[in-house]
Design a protein around this nucleic acid. Sequence first.
DNA 1: GCACTTATGGTCAGTCTTACCTGAAGAACT
DNA 2: AGTTCTTCAGGTAAGACTGACCATAAGTGC
Lengths: 241, 241
Amino acid sequence: MSKTVRGRRPPASVAVAVDLVIFTVRDGRLHVLLIERGNMPHRGEAALPGGFVRDGEALDATARRELREETGVVGDTLHLEQLHAYGAPERDPRGRIVSIAYLALGPDLPTPKAGTDAAAAHWTPVSSILHGQVTLAFDHEQILRDGLERARSQLEHTTIAAAFCKEPFTIADLRQIYEAVWGVPLDPSNFRRKVMKTDGFVVPIGERRLPEVGRPAGLFRRGPAETLTPPLMRSGNVGLR
Amino acid sequence: MSKTVRGRRPPASVAVAVDLVIFTVRDGRLHVLLIERGNMPHRGEAALPGGFVRDGEALDATARRELREETGVVGDTLHLEQLHAYGAPERDPRGRIVSIAYLALGPDLPTPKAGTDAAAAHWTPVSSILHGQVTLAFDHEQILRDGLERARSQLEHTTIAAAFCKEPFTIADLRQIYEAVWGVPLDPSNFRRKVMKTDGFVVPIGERRLPEVGRPAGLFRRGPAETLTPPLMRSGNVGLR
DNA sequence: GCACTTATGGTCAGTCTTACCTGAAGAACT
DNA sequence: AGTTCTTCAGGTAAGACTGACCATAAGTGC
């Protein structure tokens, strides 16, 4: 296969795949989309959704295509970023497969239907994986942990937390995202002050939402800002319930 | 080539390469290691060093091997981290090549000798590339820009700046790293206070360095700390001279 | 009305940052 | 020796930001 590639030593024969860590927040807890593998190896086990890169397809395009196939969501509405490349020689028994992992964040998505390669897909609480109640195929648990750490870090420095929220949303909705991803409770008052003072994080819509109980909350949309300066810092003690 | 990979659609035939963004600081300016390409395509043009992943070789191992081949430096002494994967279909005229870029940071290294695939290798000021005086082959300018941004960000949140310094070093040496990478002057006094107060960033060696002019400066080694909390923030106006 | 819940806004002390200022320790020069 | 120059080292005061906490507002259900 190296006929098109000249080099001192022919490059290894490698397949490139894309795996997706798709996070959402449901009932105040962080969930990740897992599939039950329909093919060997690891048939019947839980794994991250993903698939191979096709001829002439950019990596981002593969990620968006898989995202659409697995969740039915058009990628343009979701935050999607590259996470890391995993290429340990023995990570997949089928042969040399380098996987480019992507991180996707979105508001509470519809329960996905089974995709092409998946017997079934469901939202799984991240804590159940971290606590060993669910085990993942391949090196997908490591990918998930890396994705979680990236998401936590992004919440500190950027405004992507709003990507988890269906618009319009309240400040409390946004705060619950932070609490779910970081695994720590935040002071509502201080959180509000910080968010409101960051220019362009959220913009008020002027309306209110009537809750079942409590004072009505103001509604907001995402603002144009992308970075948080200064960052919204987590004070160290993070973890998932 | 898909005989070992079962799937609904055979994966694209892809070669995987590793490219290196190797930074160092010389004469108070940030430099990157470039090679002059010895083979087609882009023969004779400047490019980042790199090479193909070999059979059974992990990605990190490829990066360390290339680092050694290009610079003669044993990778264990350098900071090395994965940066990003680049996989646009047309990024390399030889065919579909996905490149995993790595970022390496090190103290002023010996002028490297030509590597396997390189006609020549030299340290090039990053500013000359950013200002268009030097153009890079493939999409390597984008990789370089991403690497620069990563390095700048890492300086804020971690202690890797010390990886740029040959031990022992002075606080002023460390500060010049920040100034070179961020492209802004820093207040020596405030910088010192911040570094000294961060537990485990640097440890005093008890000796002093006699400069050509001025008061002798205390000498330090790298400390065990890896993260900076709170971060050492750049106040927005960054850029390279 | 009253109890309860959540949203919103404010206070206050402590910490960190920024922009300065002052003195210390050496070399070079007169 | 004494002065000047340079850089290192440390300090100070104003302001920004954080975290803990309190107070009030605006709904619901009784």
